[in-house]
Design a protein around this nucleic acid. Structure first.
Lengths: 187, 187
DNA sequence: CTAATTATAGGACAATCGTCCTATAATTAG
DNA sequence: CTAATTATAGGACGATTGTCCTATAATTAG
């Protein structure tokens, strides 16, 4: 069984994941990833036969990571309102990277909308996982009307904050808007 | 005087502007732009000596276009609240493009944050022009406290809406969130 | 008209891109 | 141990990239 090959495959995905986040998908070459992992391009191509394929693997890996993370949040916080706050605070906990590279989910979707619309439908699953989890928390909170709309509203709010934070490299804005968003209540 | 050359220069900038918006900066080559204008690559290089230079010209052109547009809005609407609504409705008036390509300002900043941080400081001037105009309108409305913060808040709200609209190709979301944002009032 | 300047075309340039192939090396199965 | 499979390295491939050069065409200045 290819257990050693599987381990390398995961290292490749992890390296590609970070590079796509830091310098964008289009701007990251096979060589960049191979160099980061410390293997040859030929070997890289043995594991992933095309750039679409490595992108697809990175998206799957991110979706899985988000699911795992949300499960941990569920264990950590029993109060759905606390969980909601923890979601809103997520960019705050990763200020440096958010400031420099934006949101891994949002920025990838924004890029794919321009260069690879086929993969966009794959990428926005990352948003969908958050959305479905948010819907659950809103249900727990007793919200009954427009639950999906409100979940999407939260995602959009966070995306907007991150986009502006990234464009202006402005952590103060991130902090102040995050605080304000937590004052949200159902209208 | 190079008045014919100047006319071509503007056609080049216009073509690059649209291509950068539709397929991204990194993913647009000199050949793409030259083909779109119908000139040779050599001629293109006579007018713009590097990719940074054409990007810089596109950003300047966009900033100027935004200034012109906001002046027209000022003529068109005397009520600052109406002007604010017209700003919020901007993505709605360009639904098709927003859905397909996102925000020209936001998506360019997001891309440049990853591939060309030097130019990012140039690009976010596009946001700054909107911000300063919004500050003016808020002043007219009698808002005295946190005016800059509120202006940035509006920009972030619109950015978030557009990012999600683009990622999900969801016009309904755009319409409903736009309507909700117009219910905003100072707290 | 002539000379100088500006504009345009076309191709050369090295580098890099994604892709693919082949020859070994390492591992596993029998 | 031997044979088969899996993994790895290295380089060839055509295409494309941004950049630059040179020769000509068009325009302008005297």
């Amino acid at each position: 069984m290819g257990s050693k090959g599987e381990a390398l495959r995961q290292r490749i995905v992890a390296a590609a994941d970070e590079l796509f986040y830091r310098q964008g998908y289009e701007n990251t070459s096979f060589s960049d990833i191979a160099d980061a992992v410390g293997i040859s391009r030929g070997n890289f191509y043995y594991h992933f036969k095309s750039k679409d394929e490595i992108l697809s693997a990175v998206i799957d890996s991110r979706v899985a990571a988000i699911v795992t993370m949300l499960n941990e949040w569920d264990k950590k916080f029993k109060d759905p309102r606390q969980r909601l706050y923890y979601y809103i605070d997520m960019p705050l906990r990763d200020q440096e990277n958010i400031c420099l590279h934006g949101c891994p989910v949002g920025s990838l979707c924004t890029e794919l909308a321009k260069i690879n619309r086929t993969m966009l439908d794959d990428a926005n699953r990352m948003f969908a996982v958050f959305r479905d989890w948010l819907i659950l928390q809103l249900n727990f909170l007793g919200v009954r009307k427009n639950v999906k709309k409100i979940a999407m509203h939260f995602i959009a709010r966070v995306q907007g904050i991150v986009t502006v934070t990234n464009a202006f490299e402005d952590k103060d804005f991130l902090q102040q808007e995050t605080k304000q968003l937590k004052k949200w209540q159902c209208r």
